[in-house]
Amino acid sequence: MTNPSKIIEGGVEYSLGDFDGTTVHYDFNRILIYLDAKGKLLFGNHFKIYKADRPVLRKLCAYTIRDALTCKRFGIDPEKGLLINGPVGCGKTSLMKLLPHLFPGRRHYEMIPSRNVVFSFNHIGYKTIEDYGNSGYFCFDDLGAEPIGSYYGKDCNVLGEVLLSRYELYLASKGRIKTHATTNLNAKELEERYGDRVRSRMRVLFNLVGFPKQAVDKRI
């Protein structure tokens, strides 16, 4: 029987917890050891798990492994997506790229830079909103930093329209198709960027998990 608590990376076996034959009992400290090793493989030897980021990581890991008790303790709804916010360079994107590796066989979201969605809209128009809004599993990276779209001289808040469509998709799929995003903006700034209608939909779509304002820039 395959042991889902074991993952092999670079010829090294990592244990994420204990498997009793039916259930994996995850161990957060063992998960951190694996994530640190996998992060180095993905991003280079400069990558590391910072002690100050562990409270955020505990929430993200609980969500990813669907630990209902821990999610409840942190006010996280496993049926919603994740909206990760924090200062520039704090590691939001890296973590969202890293977390799916805890479940190698599961279907995962595709990381999409928000600006690329706008660039696509500028090129092919409203089909872009259909492509990203009506299907698929996506994490929109750097939400709020993208420019306003323009197609044949008509401006469009592209990601705002995509999020409205993703909200309808979420409801239609009964929460099966989730949306994730990373952003440098806080709730007030997101509302200013997209309007109160989109912001209200975002409350339904997302769990907000924030890095502290003083989180260091790991890219320096």
Rank of each mutant, 00 (worst) to 15 (best):
L171I: 15
R58F: 11
I112E: 05
G125S: 11
K127Q: 13
F211M: 00
L163G: 11
L57T: 10
P113Y: 03
G81R: 01
E189N: 03
S120H: 09
D77V: 07
G144F: 01
T183Q: 00
S150I: 06
R203H: 02
C90Y: 04
N157F: 01
F140M: 08
N134M: 05
P212T: 04
L99M: 07
V88W: 04
G44R: 14
D20C: 13
G125Q: 06
M96N: 05
E189R: 05
C61G: 02
T128P: 01
L69A: 15
G210N: 14
F211C: 00
L143P: 02
C61H: 03
V88G: 00
A37E: 03
I84Y: 03
E146W: 07
F103Y: 06
L82E: 03
F74N: 11
T182Y: 05
K51Y: 14
E168R: 15
F19K: 12
Y26K: 09
G175T: 07
Y137N: 11
K59R: 15
I31P: 02
R30F: 01
P100T: 11
Y50R: 15
G44L: 13
I129H: 02
T128Y: 01
Y50Q: 13
K51Q: 15
P100Y: 08
Q214G: 02
E130M: 05
R73E: 15
L190K: 11
F43Q: 11
A62I: 07
F103H: 14
L190V: 11
F206L: 06
H101S: 12
L57D: 09
L83S: 10
T128M: 01
L41C: 03
G11L: 14
F138Q: 03
F138N: 06
F19V: 13
K178I: 04
H46F: 14
F74A: 05
I112S: 03
T2P: 10
T183C: 01
Y167P: 06
R115F: 02
R201A: 07
L185K: 10
G86H: 06
D27G: 05
R201E: 04
L41R: 13
T128S: 08
G86I: 03
R73Y: 14
C156D: 10
E192M: 09
V204N: 09
S114W: 00
A187R: 11
N184I: 00
A68P: 00
G17V: 08
D27C: 11
D18F: 11
L83T: 06
G17C: 08
L32H: 08
G136K: 00
T128C: 01
N116I: 00
S173K: 07
G17L: 05
L82F: 02
I220T: 02
D131E: 15
G153V: 01
L208M: 03
A37K: 09
Y152G: 04
M202K: 04
I124Y: 07
R199C: 00
E130P: 00
H46K: 15
N29Q: 14
L169F: 12
A172P: 02
K188V: 04
